[in-house]
Design a protein around this nucleic acid. Sequence first.
DNA 1: CGCGAGCTTGACGTTGTTCAACTAGAGTGG
DNA 2: CCACTCTAGTTGAACAACGTCAAGCTCGCG
Lengths: 232, 232
Amino acid sequence: MINELFANLNNTSAIFKLFGDQYLKSEDIELIKGNSQKLIFNKGEVLIKQGSRSTHVVFLFKGIIKHTYQQENYKNMILTITSAPSLIGGANMFNDGKNIFSVIAVESCEAFMIDINILKQLLMQNSQLALKLFDIVSEMSKDSIINFINLAHKHVNGKVADILLYLSESVYKSQKFTLSLTRRELSEFAGISEINFITTLKKFEKDGIVNSNCKEIEIVNKAQLELISKLG
Amino acid sequence: MINELFANLNNTSAIFKLFGDQYLKSEDIELIKGNSQKLIFNKGEVLIKQGSRSTHVVFLFKGIIKHTYQQENYKNMILTITSAPSLIGGANMFNDGKNIFSVIAVESCEAFMIDINILKQLLMQNSQLALKLFDIVSEMSKDSIINFINLAHKHVNGKVADILLYLSESVYKSQKFTLSLTRRELSEFAGISEINFITTLKKFEKDGIVNSNCKEIEIVNKAQLELISKLG
DNA sequence: CGCGAGCTTGACGTTGTTCAACTAGAGTGG
DNA sequence: CCACTCTAGTTGAACAACGTCAAGCTCGCG
């Protein structure tokens, strides 16, 4: 759904076109433009900080980000890895205000920061737009929840297979890709130890399912990987 | 948030009052009333079936339900346990239509089934109402996600402690309660084996933290339970 | 040339699951 | 009224899965 909506978006004006063509008057577009700013984030930089007040909704139009959750006594945890184009932070919009997660650039990113109060104001006037946003946000949280469910009761093989398929299909959109994440980060996404992630990946390599050379990953036998994912 | 909204609701007319007083015209209320029905569900009966098309949003005003997720080769999984009053199924409203979870009565329930198309129609006309619903739904999914995160990286002690605290605080709202769920169901909620759940519960009992006699559970030392939950 | 970060491997101990056996209570049919 | 059976709860023992530790490797960068 989100892909369908944001397909072919590769510059900032596209977002206005997206909303505008269907739902927004030209003065509304000007209002958003006047209260938003385009920012560039380097790898590792924080777009949204956990615990801070929500002030912006972020439209990511270039790069890859991760949602992380940190808590004392806990290991870090990566909740999602998302590539542009994507709308981020919408779910926090009407929560009393604090961001529950951090959003961090995994490679260099370009994003449009949209003032949350301006957006709210527009949504109040325009229920079609509000419902569209509702739709986008609930679709995204549905994906996260399904991901959680899978990770919650699969074993290591299934988890690693899931991650590889996810990276291939949803993030890099290719059978062969150059990772912008470390093994440690991927293990935090899978919810397993780094060492266990590595040994499992190597096992897949020995079985001829993937090739991995440090940051270069290639999925050789996708059908087999899907089978492993299914069996858990 | 949801508690605040639904506080003091104990009959069907209250839901209309809730929406109506603030946002709805009286003819809208009549429209909902004419397209909704009050139903009673016995323990174990299905309110919403996974995979079916979303046709209704459910306002649960009496009883306790569980959200479950089933998949071939998988163990059952319980995602949430929720007591009335609560709004259920809102997140699916604008997904292309299929329910991702089942909703099953854990004890006898009374619910108001609101036709989804009628509600959509109202939301289209009334953006304040749409945003309110957005707010409720995102608050609920936030709770689920935090719950998932906790379960994902805690050990058995922490998981069981979490479950007991959750049942006490959010479901039965008392230090002492009579379970309407089996040990097996609670283990599916915790994401651990039934046997491991039982042994851990018994260990807590030996340590003087809880009393458990079959369906009767009493939390004796809440502070200790919270500590265990925190330590994981 | 050396240092550090990321990656890799094997050995070991902990944690959690599975299996099997037993108990108690509730419902059923003779 | 008494077997009989079925389900839920319980316990201990064997086994498998996973995380931790220790050590070595490679590569890029100062």
